[in-house]
């Protein structure tokens, strides 16, 4: 068995684990070991998936969720990087905003969501706002850490050659902060997905987060799992994407 490389073994065993789980689940459901009405079974989930796909429900929900995800995330990326650089470069700004950022980082924003609903109403805007708030803080904090990690020598070098303020930011600070910003993005993406689900579950009538709750309320457990599995896949995919980008950056810096 030593002839198997570690990577292959990892892949094979991982696949085996997932397959075994589904086989066991299917068997238990069909032999009344578990109650099918509440636990459903893989084959029923596949049937539900096909039905949702053909009716266009799934694509519609996916479009809504991904749209909110993208808008909320991009907003927090732009604003988070800008604020993070401002906070990293100016002590005044950092000291003044620090308590607020710290509060947003440690306070469970989920508790604030009812107020956001009161301010912005049900639906799209609220979901995007919740997503933005959950995501932006991790990007701000990491960007600031990135700016702090810049070698002062490099800044002085640009200034010595007559570089102005803008040159310092675009030529030195932004490129040097990129690895930490990407790390912040990776944390932020997970939180953004959480924000989308949270917003949709409690204050929307569309999207995957809404569907999870809608189908559960009607005991359509197979449909719940379709939405749940799609959400898990989105989470896995975004995380993998970030890992790839991080690896590329590592190679580029070396």
């Amino acid at each position: 068995m030593r002839s198997l490389s570690d990577k292959t073994e990892r892949f094979l065993l991982g696949t085996l684990g997932v397959v075994a789980l589904f086989v066991f689940w299917e068997y238990a459901a069909n032999h009344n070991i578990i109650n099918v009405a509440v636990t459903t079974s893989p084959s029923r989930i596949v049937v539900a998936f096909v039905a949702q796909w053909q009716s266009g429900d799934l694509l519609g929900d996916l479009r809504v969720s991904l749209g909110e995800f993208a808008v909320g995330f991009l907003l927090s990326l732009v604003i988070g990087v800008a604020l993070g650089i401002a906070m990293g470069m100016s002590r005044m700004v950092e000291y003044a905003t620090d308590p607020f950022i710290w509060f947003l980082y440690s306070a469970p924003l989920i508790a604030l969501y009812p107020l956001i609903v009161v301010w912005l109403g049900f639906g799209y805007t609220t979901v995007v706002a919740v997503t933005f708030l959950l995501t932006v803080v991790s990007i701000i904090v990491n960007t600031m850490a990135g700016v702090h990690s810049v070698e002062p020598v490099l800044v002085r070098a640009v200034q010595a050659f007559g570089g102005n303020y803008r040159a310092v930011v675009t030529k030195v600070i932004l490129p040097a902060s990129v690895p930490l910003i990407v790390a912040g993005v990776r944390i932020g993406l997970g939180r953004a997905l959480l924000g989308v689900v949270l917003g949709e579950m409690f204050s929307s009538n569309a999207g995957l987060g809404f569907r999870v709750s809608y189908y559960a309320g009607r005991l359509r457990t197979a449909d719940v799992f379709v939405a749940l599995i799609v959400l898990i896949l989105i989470g896995l995919a975004t995380d993998q994407l970030c890992k790839q980008i991080e690896a590329r950056l590592q190679a580029w810096r070396a």
């Binding site: 997970g190 959480l194 457990t221 959400l231």
Partner: peptide, 12 residues
């Protein structure tokens, strides 16, 4: 990597 909150309805 899944958003944990999505499990709430099924857990209920």
């Amino acid at each position: 990597s899944a958003p944990m909150i999505a499990f709430v309805p099924i857990i209920v």
